[in-house]
Write a protein that binds this DNA or RNA. Sequence first.
DNA 1: CCAAAAGTGTTGCAGATACACCCATGT
DNA 2: ACATGGGTGTATCTGCAACACTTTTGG
Lengths: 243, 243
Amino acid sequence: MSDEAWSPPAVLLAVDLVILTLRDSRLSVLLVERGIEPHQGDPALPGGFLQHSCEDLRAAAIRELNEEAALDASRLHLEQLGTYGTPDRDPRGRVVSVAYLVIAPALPEPIAGTDAADASWTPVEEILSGDRRLAFDHEEIVTDGVERARNKLEHSPLATAFCDKTFTISQLQQVYEAVWGVELDPRNFYRKVQAVPGFIVSAGTERRSTRGRPARLFRAGSRTTLHPPLVRPDPPNPKEEER
Amino acid sequence: MSDEAWSPPAVLLAVDLVILTLRDSRLSVLLVERGIEPHQGDPALPGGFLQHSCEDLRAAAIRELNEEAALDASRLHLEQLGTYGTPDRDPRGRVVSVAYLVIAPALPEPIAGTDAADASWTPVEEILSGDRRLAFDHEEIVTDGVERARNKLEHSPLATAFCDKTFTISQLQQVYEAVWGVELDPRNFYRKVQAVPGFIVSAGTERRSTRGRPARLFRAGSRTTLHPPLVRPDPPNPKEEER
DNA sequence: CCAAAAGTGTTGCAGATACACCCATGT
DNA sequence: ACATGGGTGTATCTGCAACACTTTTGG
């Protein structure tokens, strides 16, 4: 089982980014058009290889965020999503990819920027439904990222990462509605989020002008876990099963 | 930013295992004593390098499970936990490690087996409290694994992976009590788990003999998510915080 | 004044806790 | 008989969904 002189095989390590945001009330992910083979011309997640052999994984994710999406990592939520290493996932050879999940507030327009003038926001629904195919195993990675985001809304203040530094409660509600794909009662939502200590904190007495009564502004609080959680309503039919 | 002839750096890829089980009502993790430098003689997680450059990650985890722990992967719960790639985590050079979480039912004794006659179960409390130091960043990996297990008990049937193929409800309760470190009311627990469709299904009318009334036996059901969830009681003081 | 959005009060129901109680077996 | 653990019934508590209602703004 163990040879005398054996040395472990090396692999190429890549970092891919699932960058989620809200664009006109729809959960969207940033895609870039691949400029080179393989999968040239296909939409794919932003990402790339480790730059040098001692680059930290998270640092590499932050670097790609700047290069490919022209986004500033400080201010954004960034967490490791998972590692994808099926042997045949890249035709060039053995490439193992560490995926990161990034949550960004709504931004002006695509992204005037650097490497990726071809970057574009795509509603995740198009990908989850299979209408739009991505390069490599990136569809699976997006699916996992969306799933992670949906679950974390319940137990963490992740939703605030979709908002600007200050936000109204109804803006926060729109995040939950878009990510979960449900409708919520604004009156109950209003009290529910305020009942969670440390979730949101009042941000002065400022007001923004729309039609109707002006709303109070809030900032994200310091809490990292939500007690009690914001429970997601059962969507369809949780029928009785085997016992 | 992009050189003409540049090729991405290769790294060494390892797989580490956090194998959790219950031993006399305590949540425990399998550790092996390192036989070689670095950290020779220190306790560490079972694991090792990818064997050949096209070995699948999950397959490598299963192989290590056999070699180092003499455990049969079919029958055990195994899921990816996370990837640890701090540049200086291994003094031999750049090693990135993909950690897997394994849940095993209580087993006879340490592990008569192969490579690892020196394998031993250690209560996780000794590690979380900092009393026992592990090689590399393995303390962090164990912490993350325990955290993952604690959270998944609420929303998935993970607890059944700690039990034998058939089990009584009070055995299942002991899993929750040991992993969460709380006490639960057996009568309410009894009905709560039965109220979740597809969580556990009755396994014949068999009975096991102890003192007291014999209990019914159950098997794990087909459900992968629990509706409603088994909520963990608040442990300490969720005091009011900033608003 | 009216429409629209923010914010408050109240009620009824569902699920959970706490605990009294009954059941089946070993010694 | 009685100790021990399995299992059931039920009163009470609590949180939440539902929705009527008030407040504050723009047009």
